[in-house]
Design a protein around this nucleic acid. Sequence first.
RNA 1: UGCCUCAUGGUGUAACGGUAGCACAGCAGACUCUGGAUCUGCUUGUUUAGGUUCGAAUCCUAAUGAGGCAACCA
Length: 577
Amino acid sequence: MSDENTAAESDTSRHFLKQWIAEDVAAGRTGGQVVTRFPPEPNGYIHIGHAKAICIDFGMAREFGGQCNLRMDDTNPSKESDEYAESIKRDIRWLGFDWGDGFYSAANLFDRMCEIAENLIRGGHAYVCGLTQEEWKAYRGVPTVPGRESPTRNRSPEENLALFRRMRAGEFPDGSLCLRAKIDMASPNIHFRDPVLYRILHVPHYHAGDTWCVYPMYDFAHPIEDAFEGVTHSMCTLEFEVHRPLYDWVIDRMDEMGLLTVRNGVKIRPQQREFARLNLTYTVMSKRKLLQLVEEKRVTGWDDPRMPTICGLRRRGYTPEAIRDFCERIGVSKFESETDVALLEYCVRDDLNRRAVRRMAVLDPVKVVIDNLPEGHAAMVEVANNPEDPSAGTRKIPFSREVYIERDDFMEVPAKKFFRVTPGQEVRLRAACLFTCTHVVKDAAGTVTEIHGTCDPDSTGGNAADGRKVKGTLHWVSVAHAVPLEVRLVDRLFTVPDPMGDPQRDFLSFLNPDSCRTVTAYAEPALRDAEPGERFQFERLGYFCADTRDSRPGAPVFNRTVTLKDSWARQAAGPKR
RNA sequence: UGCCUCAUGGUGUAACGGUAGCACAGCAGACUCUGGAUCUGCUUGUUUAGGUUCGAAUCCUAAUGAGGCAACCA
């Protein structure tokens, strides 16, 4: 009854996070505002998997009229940099999300975290431990065997406090001491066996400079950050599920210290929930593997158009709308799934089909000579910029006696149901005329060098005067006016759906050798003036985007975003592509 | 063999004790000046075994399978 009155509950599709938040809102636990956060560590470029998390974190906040903070979870300076932090901001903005004034850095809270650590020490909840990592391994035990207590576990708070301050003052070398929470060495959850809270690291911080030589661990820092920001719903991926009791432990200590944010009279107790990360077929998603691809120069960089990074997808021609649509369609659950990249490709085709203007370009040209047109014949034909969108208008393109068509649009001996150029079969040269092949010219090797034929002089514009139909319509480019263009036929990075799926083989052995074939295409003149980043459909071929890095004025370089669906190729060639 | 989590067509995701639905992929057809788009139709599914119930994908138990946890990473 009253359930049905709540707006957030009337949605048709409500995944478990949405339900969870809706319940808290209804129960008045948010103090009137849902606050989420996206907490990347600036140690790499973000990828499509992060886009899923971003869409969830920002999306939930948006849906409940709340706020999503962007927080750099920069607690390990040895791997972080400003370059990464800036790229993350740029990519999130490009995806279409805005954190308003909710930008945070863990580093800005290091002072507070130290105070909290000292409070824990005073309260007997933390101690300084001098065991080496090797020794600790033995003390900690394994999941099936309880651990033993560190010899210094029951040192007095006064001693611990003094030691911790000396750690902070830089009196000890890296790894010699650490601060541990005193919890339960027998817990079946390893994270409760006196986890490290602070470690010594004589490394400057990209943002905080060289103020610090002790840095908090994730498990300590994250709940503190959430609490200070008044985060109500802290969503992360499944591998943090086992960390949740520890997260709650820190929140409990914060609560005892009276440090939880109070909003509109409601004490905000941050809660963590976990969802499955995104896996995509034909690519890898781990930062480590992506870094390896970059460092070993298997790709040209983080923004290589073949990379699943946001900057790579952007450069390849993907739109933020397509990526957001994809993230919406894949849903949210706790099932560790592998999403078919075909869905991502569908999303970008769907978006670009509506928005991208059409152009004609021939990737693998063969010359057609229309023998019944006079030498030097020249005309302009008019064609729609986008049949899906009349407001995109029309353009005129030059047509002449000699044009290029795609080599595989010709078959001397046609396969069954081949509707394109073959001797005696009439086809349409799009927007120009109807054409029938009469004969071909070959070189010594037997390769067709010229296709000859005649056009129907009464078919100007592409329609026969008598209204007869032709099955095939081809794109073409006038030889005399063709603009040569560098085009990269970007394809999947790997040859198998799951490059990591075979424990016997290195994922690099599955790299697709044809993932980026460069060809010289011939294009209609308008394409010469394409702006970097501008997206087009090359008719009958696919969507292409002028590269933002390598294009020059008057000489754009194109990356193929995705091919058009090609049911002929599928039928004729069988699998592949 | 400790703890935690997960299991619905090829893939992903709904159904919250009452007709297993949607999308992608695939197949077939219609239409088409892109073999694109659009439209129509079709194929394919509740891991297994018990139990509770008038009724179970849903609740309980067990089994099986998958994943996570034993960094001074996040």
